[in-house]
Every structure is written in structure tokens, then in C-alpha cells.
Computed example of a mutant assay.
Amino acid sequence: MKKFRTVVSIITMVIAGVIGFFIGATMNEAMSGAILFSMIAGIACVVFTIDNRAE
């Protein structure tokens, strides 16, 4: 189950990065948007994983 959470977290961050890239591109800050969205998604995944430990 740990590997599944890791894979889902990575996929979520990649999708958020792609979405952030295109949203940022509309404001002429493509890489900044991608980094921002990926960081927000990454922090959310970390908080979710810490909150839902299955031990």
C-alpha cells in the first residue's frame, strides 16, 4: 500500500505541474506556475499521508 500512495502522489504532482505550466503560460510565467502547483500538490500529499497512516 505504501508504493501505491507514493505512485499516486507522484502522478498527482506531475498532473498539477502540467496544469500549472499551462495556467502559468497564460501569464507569461510557465515554469513558475508549474513549480507552484507541484509544490502545493506535494505538500497536500505529504499532509494527507501523515494524517492517514495505516499502522
Rank of each mutant, 00 (worst) to 15 (best):
48 F>R: 04
38 S>K: 02
43 I>F: 00
28 N>R: 09
52 N>G: 09
29 E>L: 06
9 S>C: 05
24 G>W: 02
14 V>R: 00
6 T>K: 07
27 M>I: 12
28 N>W: 01
1 M>L: 07
10 I>W: 12
34 A>G: 05
55 E>H: 07
27 M>Y: 13
7 V>R: 04
35 I>F: 03
33 G>I: 08
12 T>F: 05
4 F>W: 08
16 A>D: 01
37 F>T: 01
48 F>M: 14
45 C>S: 12
48 F>I: 10
16 A>P: 00
39 M>R: 08
38 S>D: 08
19 I>K: 05
9 S>A: 15
45 C>P: 01
49 T>H: 12
18 V>E: 14
21 F>T: 09
34 A>T: 09
31 M>T: 14
4 F>V: 12
47 V>Y: 11
52 N>S: 11
35 I>W: 02
17 G>S: 07
43 I>D: 12
32 S>K: 03
24 G>N: 11
3 K>T: 08
40 I>Y: 00
35 I>M: 14
7 V>A: 14
3 K>C: 00
27 M>S: 14
4 F>N: 11
14 V>P: 02
54 A>V: 05
15 I>H: 06
53 R>V: 02
11 I>S: 03
52 N>F: 07
7 V>M: 07
48 F>A: 15
20 G>I: 01
7 V>P: 00
39 M>Y: 04
46 V>A: 10
51 D>L: 14
39 M>H: 05
8 V>A: 06
17 G>F: 01
46 V>N: 06
55 E>C: 10
3 K>W: 04
32 S>M: 13
5 R>P: 01
53 R>E: 15
21 F>A: 09
31 M>D: 14
44 A>V: 08
44 A>L: 10
8 V>F: 09
45 C>D: 02
20 G>T: 03
45 C>R: 05
16 A>K: 03
25 A>F: 08
10 I>A: 14
42 G>T: 08
27 M>G: 04
31 M>E: 15
35 I>P: 00
30 A>K: 06
1 M>Y: 14
25 A>Y: 04
39 M>C: 12
19 I>S: 04
38 S>A: 10
22 F>M: 11
40 I>V: 15
34 A>Y: 00
43 I>S: 02
49 T>N: 09
13 M>R: 05
12 T>K: 11
14 V>N: 14
39 M>F: 02
2 K>I: 09
52 N>D: 15
20 G>Y: 05
